[in-house]
Design a protein around this nucleic acid. Structure first.
Length: 426
RNA sequence: GUGAGCGUAGCUCAGCUGGUGGUAGCACCGGGUUGUGGCCUCGGAGGUCGUGGGUUCAAGUCCCAUCGCUCACCCCA
């Protein structure tokens, strides 16, 4: 048996890489327009970083992290998300001292030991954005608007849902009210909800069982329990999104799986990915910087799943064209091949994408290779041409052929041919 | 962690109530065109039928186990 990749770990093959590059390029462009700077942070961090930020009791920390002790006996973890590591770097290098408001993004792999399924892998990739240093509600809208714009520029259709989770002032009050509501219905809920009633009461509202949903129709809503400050904040977020004409739906049942979120949360959702509906999601995390040992600074951020974007793009559009080539050299015979080898390198030095056959196959076969490589031109160097000291330059789309003399000064000849081909193409 | 479906050529898949592995499509190689790609045509190569047991005269086919993949639950990007 040959060695296979680990479960949930996937190779991104050349055919697919084009889409990945396009997504990243579009993202960098959009992020740049909003004033975001890229930061690259390590994949491996001290386990404590994630335990403290994401929350000890979350599923991610409890059962999904790749955690192990390294050779020094220290507990380390492969990052399950991007925010914690970026904030760690932000604090460690005192970036807050350089600018009042920092806008950062990072791109890279994340790791969670879950059972793989459509749109969910153990190593997956996220585009992750953070804004540190402001708690103004208009910033929430700006961040959401940026995510929305990126999705739009990629040509993907999703819907936006927003919610407010309140703050440490008002959320506990709501939680008590909710728990009381659920206690009254104990016994008539589904198995999952019975369990969640104790472990994560906020999440029962998200239950997919129709029976449960019927009962939750008159469940208390977080939005009715927001304190004055959170109400005003959420109000401005909604108003700002409306001002930018970004359509959104309020989903008071929306819950996030990371403990650090408060106030504004949002999700970009699609129904085209099976069970994994969130393409991107994020929210405000005031207090997290301080919790990680930094200054008391508010923050907001979001992450988008690269694999999910790729799946959506693959569904929505035909495959991009294969790689294209400027020129292919078909050489017949040892003498011709030897000259072709030098010409090939000379053309490449002059900026052409050029290739040739190295197996010494028939001309027909070599022409086939030229066609497969999508070459604009083929340079034919056969025995006849060698005798006449010429080469044939064939335009593959028009099939027109012209004879050109073989090089006397190779460097000059290659430069001229490269220039000619480039000018003909544009 | 729980459940379901599926493992036959590089890929997508036929293969009936067990009876010698498919002139199947795509891709690959070669010929037709002794030196010219895409279209056409002819040919070629390519397989421990996921693995290990069992039943049987005989197993790709039935049974058991195991591994892998996929989807769903859960969770999440």
């Amino acid at each position: 048996m040959s060695i296979r990749a680990l479960k949930g770990f996937k190779d991104i093959l050349p055919d697919e890489v084009g889409i990945w590059q396009r997504i990243e390029a579009t993202a960098r462009d959009v992020f740049h327009r909003f004033g975001f700077a890229e930061i690259k942070v390590p994949i491996l961090e001290k386990t404590e970083l994630f335990a403290r930020s994401i929350g000890e009791a979350t599923d991610i920390v409890e059962k999904e992290m790749y955690t192990f002790t390294d050779r020094n006996g220290e507990s380390v973890t492969m990052r399950p998300e991007g925010t914690a590591a970026v904030l760690r770097a932000f604090i460690e290098h005192s970036l807050y001292a350089k600018l009042p408001v920092q806008k950062l993004y990072t791109v890279g792999p994340m790791f969670r030991h879950e059972r793989p399924q459509k749109g969910r892998l153990r190593q997956f990739h996220q585009l992750s954005c953070e804004v540190l240093g402001s708690d103004l509600p208009r910033l929430d809208a700006e961040v959401i608007a940026m995510a929305w714009l990126l999705i739009n520029e990629l040509g993907i259709t999703v819907s936006l849902e927003i919610n407010s989770l309140g703050c440490p002032e008002c959320r506990p009050v709501f939680k008590d009210t909710l728990v009381k509501f659920l206690d009254e219905r104990a016994g008539s809920l589904c198995e999952d909800c019975e369990r969640r009633r104790h472990t994560n009461p906020l999440r029962v509202l998200d239950c997919k069982s129709a029976h449960c949903q019927e009962q939750y129709v008159d469940a208390p809503s977080i939005l009715d329990h927001l304190c004055r400050g959170c109400q005003d904040h959420f109000g401005t977020v909604k108003e700002s999104l409306a001002q930018l004409e970004i359509p959104f739906k309020i989903n008071s049942f929306m819950v996030r799986g990371l403990d650090y979120y408060n106030r504004t949360t949002f999700e970009l959702i699609t129904d085209a990915l099976g069970a994994q509906s969130a393409v991107g999601a994020g929210g405000r995390y005031d207090g997290l910087v301080e919790q990680l040992g930094g200054p008391s600074l508010p923050g907001i951020g979001f992450a988008m799943g690269m694999e999910r974007l790729v799946l959506l793009l693959q569904q929505q559009e035909a495959q991009a064209n294969g790689p294209t080539s400027d020129l292919f050299i078909a050489a017949l015979g040892e003498e011709a091949q030897k000259i072709a080898f030098a010409i090939l390198h000379g053309l490449r030095k002059n900026g052409l994408q050029a290739g040739m056959d190295i197996e010494g196959r028939s001309l027909k076969s070599q022409m086939k290779q030229a066609g497969r490589a999508n070459a604009a031109y083929t340079l034919i160097l056969g025995e006849e041409e060698m005798a006449k000291k010429i080469a044939i330059l064939r335009d593959m789309s028009t099939r027109a052929q012209e004879e050109i003399p073989l090089p006397e000064d190779l460097a000059e000849w290659c430069q001229a041919l490269a220039a000619k081909i480039k000018s003909n193409q544009c």
